[in-house]
Amino acid sequence: MPSLSPNLEVNIAGVAMKNPVAAASGTCGYGDVYAEFYHPAELGALVTKGISLEPRLGNPTPRMAETPAGMLNSIGLENVGLKVFLNEKLPPLCDSGVTVVVNFFGNTEDEYAWLAETLSSATGVAGLEANISCPNVKAGGIEFGTRPEVAGKLVERIKAVCGKPLWVKLSPNVTDIAAVAKAVEQAGADAISAINTLKGMAIDLDERKPVLANVTGGLSGPAIKPVALRMVYEIAQAVKVPVVGVGGITTAKDALEFIVAGASAIQVGTASFVNPRAPIQIINGIKNWMRENSLERVQDIIGTLKV
């Protein structure tokens, strides 16, 4: 007999999650924004807005443009910076009882390493997620995440000082994502999150101007789901570490597709903008689907795609 309450627990390289659904970085603030809609502790985990060494104000507006079944953003990684995060944002977030994964990024390898060391020694942090889709200032602004050797070298550097499980979040703007995944796995990444936003553009034809002040931005939402799903599948084939799937997930069915494709957990981003309760509905939907299919443990369906 399948139990009435299926077991949704997963463990992502030492980050214990009571269900496989996390809120994605940059779409849930520091855990304070959806408090009126659900208790954060209902989530499997919450991934914070990306943290940098210094506070950042981000790019000029307009920095959001709607596109078919999706949106572009050029927020430019606005965040409160390490100090305010540790002093003001992290304590209430930890008090809420949610499993906290801190997303972070730097302009140089040194910055990444310093952030990893400091953040991983903060109380209440379950794990870190390194956003490597950032320009490497020393290498002329090419993203760390676009070349396997560069990504690997960065992750090695972070790993050496990081005292907590390290998830590395990959950029989809590459020709061979499996190669980047293998490089960061070899460098010591404990898990891989994929994908970040896809680089895109929107134009106002009447004005003959880009809609975004920054000209280009990152595409997210349902429009990117097929690309994200393909990449998660390819990564899961290429590496042994757990994969966290993200990109366009809106329903429990979407989430389960990622899990079957090889994701051990998933993150919900843009869908929460439209329906703030989306993550909770996805958790409930996964539960229902498992009951209907007489499945007891979500772990048992990870990577069960029949190709």
Partner: peptide, 8 residues
């Protein structure tokens, strides 16, 4: 809702 930082 204050989550995306588009509207600053």
């Amino acid at each position: 809702l204050g989550a995306c930082l588009s509207c600053v």
